[in-house]
Design a protein around this nucleic acid. Structure first.
Lengths: 140, 140
DNA sequence: TTATAAATTTGTATTGTTTACAATGCAAAT
DNA sequence: ATTTGCATTGTAAACAATACAAATTTATAA
């Protein structure tokens, strides 16, 4: 199947479901656009008019704490969230700001940090540069 | 030599020097603690009482735009800066928040992003987890 | 079912970081 | 001496994110 079920996903990560949590997880699973808190809030406010932005903040934090979503801090201006938690990298265009998924280099699995005295719970890899679209526009 | 010269570094990256810029670069080169804007501002205010925090913001942004410093957005609460621009990874302890340098895995050099249609200008790799000190304290 | 407790949500107030912008300062060039 | 252009300063404003307490919902027990 293309999309995992929101309710099942919550339960798989030990997160107690609620209308709001299901709606937010559903949005994450169906919109792989790395949305911000505000984007999720605006999008869901139509269906859930009483939704509070605080709830979106709290819920997305809970998701990331339980490993059900990724918190991306690539853009220094805003935190983004990713419902895809399988290992992958990201790319951000410095010009247009778009955030895209990138397949991990094949050898990356064997790349473990060297001589470290800490336990690794998350690994983040991302690239910044100029996307093709922006390069074409500006390049001339 | 241990520390590069601040003035030389600015000129090497095509950044017009000034008292403030030299002082900020000098601080970065001598304090490899991944300081925040505020930390730089507070530290330099003693020597330069008229220093404006806006200048620190502007200057550090200019540094990172010219490749003379790295802007680290690992901690979602605050942006940090790194005067060490040679390739290396980072580790952040989720409990105490410390940010440490980590040697890149040897194989990492060969790890290039796959099938991408963008030019890579920056590569960021970091780990999150629990440092030994925190693990020892809490672990028991 | 009703009562009680626990968890979740809501909305406002607040905090704190970052940016915008206009005024000022400064130094090199004319 | 004047102009030009960039850098700096400081205030105001924007904005993201959090704290907190009240309200609501859900779960549990009687």
């Amino acid at each position: 199947m293309t999309h995992k079920n929101a309710l099942d996903t919550l339960q798989a990560y030990g997160i107690h479901p609620s209308v709001q949590r299901i709606a937010i997880m559903d949005y994450l699973l169906k919109h792989r656009t790395h949305p911000t808190v505000d984007e999720v809030y605006v999008a869901l406010s139509k269906a859930i008019p009483t939704l509070s932005k605080t709830t979106v903040y709290n819920t997305l934090r809970i998701f990331s704490e339980h490993g059900a979503a990724l918190m991306l801090t690539i853009d220094e201006k805003k935190v983004c969230f990713d419902g895809v938690v399988t290992p992958h990298a990201h790319f951000m265009c410095k010009r247009c700001g778009q955030l895209a998924d990138v397949q991990l280099p094949g050898c990356f699995r064997e790349c473990q940090p060297l001589g470290v005295d800490f336990s690794v719970e998350e690994t983040h890899l991302y690239y910044k540069g100029i996307c093709k679209s922006c390069a074409t526009k500006a390049g001339v």
